Amino acid sequence: MHTEHHHRPWITTPLTADLLRGALDVERTAHGLLPHRLPARARAQCADPQLAMAESQPSGVRLAFRSRATAVELDTLPTKRDYVGAPPRPDGLYDLVVDGRPAGQASVAGGNTLTIDMTAGTTETRPGPVGTARFTGLPDRAKDIEIWLPHNETTELVALRTDAPVEPLPDRGRRVWLHHGSSISHGSDAASPSTTWPALAAARGGVDLVNLGLSGSALLDPFTARALRDTPADLISVKIGINLVNADLMRLRAFGPAVHGFLDTVREGHPTAPLLVVSPILCPVHEDTPGPSAPDFSTLGEERLRFRAMGDPAERAAGKLTLNVIREELERIVRQRAADDPHLHHLDGRALYGEAEAARMPLPDDLHPDAAAHRHMGERFAELVFATGPFAAPGA
């Protein structure tokens, strides 16, 4: 794409943490700034490459500033994922939001390539060039500008250029919603970073989102609970369940105490904030069949990989977890704790996506909702939780 001729010269603004929303940490790299969604101390406690990839993908992270700029260029170094045998993935999208409204999209070609061979269980990284996301034709007035980074693509921020000075977005006094969940909360298969279900719900609820949806990694890890504990927030939600089944990580005996411990830790930092525990959305393959989940390699050549439940329903007797077992236990735990914690709430995930939604918008890979289902879930969450429920604004 060509750069349009400007009557105003470009201004390069140093990229600093105060221009970022939704990141818990920023790392200085050889190229620039890499936003992280878990602090360094948490990252040091787990060597899982899936977690490292998920927390460095900037779901919900956006550059946020105030400017009269009519043109904005953002140089980034993305890391693209390439799955052996699968169709190439589209470039990640950057969503431009001006004064709270969608105002354009861009993507960045090039970048590093992470090649993942799921059958061999190997990965290989190839370095690549920095590219530019470009937005032009913005209104020539002071405005709030947000650039939502690709939710599913690790992105190093290299340079920000505008044709007018930039200042960090002033505090609008909006409540901060801190959310933790699995790849569904991370935004897997959503259309774009500002249309993941949590981003849509936050926009409708008029709150600032910090999204700790960690693909494959909502596993009740103590370091994630501490990250939630230590992050300033007014409203907190945790969506627990599907990844514990996917990974076949623990049995019922470990699950209950782990949930209690996780909630205890969050409460140390946020003793009275509304805290919502959300159980899994409907996922037919795992309702009554334990994990692990495994990719079905027979479908590799198709448009998308599908997933299968590898456990045996009979293993529930030995304490193996299924979604129905988890939902029942979460409801029981919240009911027990709510006797001493009036700000603790529960939401059955099937209220966001249940039988009716599965009939109308089936999970394309048997595990993740598609873009239409994300939109539906965001609207439902806003309706059930922000409009009238536990996150309703005081006096609403």
Rank of each mutant, 00 (worst) to 15 (best):
H6W: 03
R8C: 02
P9V: 14
W10Q: 01
T12K: 08
L15S: 02
D18H: 10
D18S: 06
R21T: 08
A23E: 05
D25N: 14
R28D: 14
G32L: 04
P35T: 03
H36A: 15
A44V: 08
A47M: 12
D48P: 12
D48V: 02
D48L: 02
A52R: 13
Q57E: 12
S59L: 05
V61W: 03
R62W: 00
R62F: 03
L63C: 09
F65D: 02
A69D: 03
A71Y: 02
L74A: 01
P78R: 01
T79W: 00
D82K: 10
D82Q: 13
P88K: 07
G92T: 05
V97L: 00
V98I: 15
V98G: 02
V98L: 15
G100E: 00
P102W: 01
S107T: 15
L114S: 11
L114D: 10
T115F: 11
I116A: 07
I116C: 12
G121E: 10
P127C: 08
P127N: 12
G128M: 04
G137N: 04
L138A: 03
P139G: 10
P139Y: 08
D140P: 06
K143G: 00
W148Q: 00
P150F: 12
T154Q: 15
T155V: 04
L157T: 09
A159K: 06
L160W: 02
D163G: 00
D163R: 00
A164I: 05
P165M: 07
P168E: 05
R174N: 12
W177I: 09
L178R: 06
H179A: 13
G181Q: 03
S188Y: 12
D189Y: 14
A191Y: 02
S194P: 02
P198R: 07
P198L: 07
A201M: 08
G205N: 09
D208C: 04
N211G: 01
N211D: 09
L212A: 05
L219W: 05
L219I: 07
L220F: 11
P222D: 14
F223I: 11
F223H: 15
P232G: 02
A233P: 15
I236P: 12
K239R: 11
K239P: 13
K239I: 05
A247T: 10
D248A: 10
D248H: 08
L252Y: 09
F255H: 09
V259K: 06
H260E: 13
F262W: 03
F262E: 03
L263A: 07
L275W: 06
V278F: 08
P280H: 04
L282Y: 11
H286A: 14
P290Y: 01
T299D: 10
G301T: 15
R304H: 13
L305H: 07
L305G: 09
A309P: 09
A318H: 09
G319S: 11
T322L: 06
N324K: 10
V325D: 06
L330V: 03
R337F: 13
R337Y: 12
D341T: 06
P342E: 15
P342T: 14
P342L: 15
H343Y: 15
L352Y: 13
L352P: 00
Y353L: 02
P362A: 03
H368S: 04
G378E: 06
E379R: 13
R380E: 15
F386E: 14
G389D: 01
P390C: 01
F391T: 04
A392S: 12
A393D: 13
G395W: 05
A396S: 15
